[in-house]
Amino acid sequence: MAKIAVEEPYEDVKKALEEKGHNVTMFVTDENVTGYDLGVVRTINEGHNDEFNFPVVAMSGMSIDNVVEAVEHRLNQV
């Protein structure tokens, strides 16, 4: 079971990931977020990739199912 940080306000993504058995916590963008296996964010700003100390999945243009698939894929790579 992975610890995943999901950017507010994506409660639907949080719920979908919890249904897959993950431990999911919501966060706000300017919060200092550490200690997670993976993060789900709205978009990744160019030049701000060092904002997190874990891999992130950017939701931009993806459905909830796509986000869950991308998260599971990234977790399997780690």
Rank of each mutant, 00 (worst) to 15 (best):
Thr43Met: 05
Pro55Asp: 07
Ser63Val: 11
Pro9Trp: 00
Pro9Lys: 03
Val71Gln: 09
Val13Glu: 04
Phe54Gln: 03
Leu38Val: 02
Gln77Lys: 12
Val57Thr: 01
Lys3Pro: 05
Lys20Tyr: 01
Gln77Pro: 00
Asn23Pro: 00
Ser60Leu: 07
Val40Leu: 07
Glu18Ser: 07
Glu11Asn: 04
Ile64His: 03
Glu8Leu: 10
Val67Pro: 07
Val68Asn: 14
Val56Arg: 01
Met59Asp: 03
Glu46Pro: 14
Ile44Lys: 10
Thr43Trp: 08
Asp30Gly: 15
Asp12Tyr: 12
Ser63Thr: 15
Gly47Pro: 11
Tyr36Gln: 02
Asn45Lys: 12
Tyr10Pro: 00
Val40Met: 07
Val56Asn: 02
Phe27Pro: 12
Val24Glu: 05
Gly39Glu: 10
Glu51Gly: 00
Thr25Val: 06
Val6Leu: 14
Tyr36Ala: 01
Asn32Lys: 15
Glu72Cys: 12
Asn53Thr: 04
Ile44His: 03
Ser60Phe: 02
Ile64Gln: 06
Val41Pro: 10
Lys20Trp: 04
Val71Tyr: 10
Asn49Val: 11
Glu7His: 08
Asn76Arg: 15
Asn23Trp: 09
Ile4Met: 04
Lys20Ile: 00
Ala16Gln: 08
Tyr36Trp: 00
Asn49Ala: 13
Val67Arg: 07
Val33Cys: 01
Arg42Trp: 01
Gly61Pro: 01
Val33Tyr: 02
Val28Pro: 00
Thr34Ala: 13
Phe52Val: 08
